[in-house]
Design a binder for these strands. Structure first.
Lengths: 178, 178
DNA sequence: CTATATCTGGACCGATCAGTCCTTAAATGG
DNA sequence: CCATTTAAGGACTGATCGGTCCAGATATAG
């Protein structure tokens, strides 16, 4: 997974995968089929990890606003320095393959949907607790947050924004919570 | 430019470029040097186009809020259907190359910076006109908007979001303007 | 200890990559 | 109308791509 993550699909050559898996060509093809299948497996794992992390961050037993703060803080962290430069396998894959590879496209779309649902859920719990600013609608606010964090991963590729990104996140969240 | 735009750098092969430029191999190399130089030229043109468009959308003589609306509406339009699936050369390049190619990285970083400056300028003009909501700071709000619109291009690759994206944009802008 | 089954490593394959170079066609100057 | 210069076209190169396949090592069973 790490190799695809660092380099993207097209730029990852078989030798990279062999070195990463410590397998030989024959064994790798016996185990995974081909490069595309292996990539799909890596992508699935990345997605599963991301959703699992969200589920702990936005844990139901937790204060929803705290959960959202933790969720966003995670993105800030992943946008910092080397993590930022490595980028996000999902965003990179969305841009590189989602338009042409249907299997990949479906996975990316369903991930964004799942992410949006989780955020919307946390927001509506926050709303019920009276923590949301007036006029904030959970579902559209969730769409905003999803776009925003994915955009963070994009701009994070270039400028190692050390503390500004945290400040930006705080400024955004302040527009939504009371 | 269009070929790189549709397929990305690595996935664009010389034959694609030959067909697009209607040049032969020899002529193309004589005119542009190599694939990388040609790509840089295409990227520069894409950036120049984007900034020029922003400058008309956020025209100084215009009402700044109207300008911001036009600017965001442009992104909504570019996220729709076929445009959305084609994606954004800048975002795709940021994810594919910015981390490893210094020349590209600098261009992407300076573009995001330039974009942020323009949005911040429009926002501060709006603030002076008393059109901004309380507590909205132009510079951090500009960073938020830049991240958001780039995120729009990412999620726009998957779900052809017909009217929802416009609604999302409206919901976001409503948090910032009075 | 031998025979069989399994698995691994890497030689090998055609295709295609970016890039070069030389022949040939076109354009220009006299 | 011819000579010279310029530019274009496409055959060609070495490297590398993803993928196959077989020889040899290893493990297991009798």
């Amino acid at each position: 997974m790490g190799v695809f993550w660092s380099r993207g699909y097209h730029a990852t050559a078989l030798p990279d995968l062999l070195q990463a898996t410590k397998l030989s060509r024959g064994s790798l093809y016996a185990a995974f089929g081909d490069k595309h299948s292996l990539f799909l497996l890596a992508l699935d794992r990345y997605i599963a990890d991301a959703l699992a992390r969200m589920d702990t961050e936005l844990d139901l037993s937790r204060e929803p606003v705290d959960g959202l703060r933790a969720y966003l803080a995670g993105y800030v962290d992943r946008t910092r320095g080397a993590n930022g430069r490595r980028g996000c396998l999902l965003v990179a894959t969305a841009m590189e393959l989602a338009g042409q590879d249907a299997e990949v496209g479906r996975r990316i779309a369903s991930f964004f949907k799942a992410m949006e649902v989780r955020v919307a859920d946390a927001l509506s719990r926050a709303k019920m607790a009276g923590k949301l600013a007036d006029g904030v609608e959970p579902s559209s606010a969730a769409r905003i947050l999803v776009c925003f964090v994915e955009g963070l991963r994009v701009v994070g590729k270039t400028g190692p924004t050390p503390i500004t990104s945290q400040a930006t996140v705080d400024a955004l969240l302040d527009r939504f919570i009371r």
